[in-house]
Nucleic acid binder design. Structure first.
Lengths: 120, 120
DNA sequence: CAGTATCCGTTCTGATACTG
DNA sequence: CAGTATCAGAACGGATACTG
């Protein structure tokens, strides 16, 4: 039974359940890295290499993939400078910026939760 | 990779990167369903079957797994009544309740984003 | 510098059938 | 009612080598 498969809109083929706004949002910020990337960009535009340094364990491949998806989803912009060596800057869009409060709340909650459960 | 911890509270072996609180939080609420479950429980305790009805596309298997993890992570409580037929109620803990603002913000953002990108 | 391409193992998720 | 058990496919994520 393959009921919720559709959405393959030519430019990217990720699937979205359209049941509710939160599920939709979760699709966009899911995975281990996107909220982290967003948080780092909240302080201003950054280059690929700068992000790579600020996010300790991410691989170049994952960073590339996540940035690409986020740009497609209009969370960030990607600006390429016609220089040698290449220079690419990433910056939050308005929509991306509006997600920052969520990032901060979640981070705060993480701090509290870790304290409360004495795991960290 | 440095510092990957086994959460050694005996009964589950999920790993947590301790890089930052947000990464930690993402581990706990990751996946497609947990924030959704949390949102539904924010209105009060619910039985397994009630949750199953309120969350349209989830399978019993996924609901079971997610509830189990959330209980282990102290986001919800699981109360079993010694009755026939069985009755189990799930309820938010204090920590789980503190996550509700995040759920609401994310949901609001989802609404706005879907409108802005005209996908929904 | 900022990526791509390829390979491959792990984790996640769904379908289906069964149970105390 | 509230789960378990099992299987299989999809998605995720890492390692490595290569490029405009």
């Amino acid at each position: 039974m393959e009921r919720i498969k559709e959405n393959s809109t030519n430019n990217h083929n990720r699937k979205f359940l359209t049941t509710c706004d939160m599920t939709y949002a979760i699709q966009l910020i899911g995975g281990r890295w996107k909220l982290l990337i967003l948080t780092h960009l909240s302080k201003g535009k950054l280059r690929f290499g700068e992000l790579n340094k600020k996010i300790p364990h991410i691989t170049e491949r994952m960073l590339t993939l996540q940035l690409k998806e986020m740009a497609e989803d209009n969370l960030i912009t990607r600006k390429v400078y016609a220089e040698v060596p290449p220079k690419v800057e990433y910056e939050l869009t308005v929509l991306g910026t509006e997600l920052i409060p969520v990032c901060l709340q979640l981070s705060d909650w993480g701090t509290k939760h870790r304290a409360a459960t004495s795991i960290g």
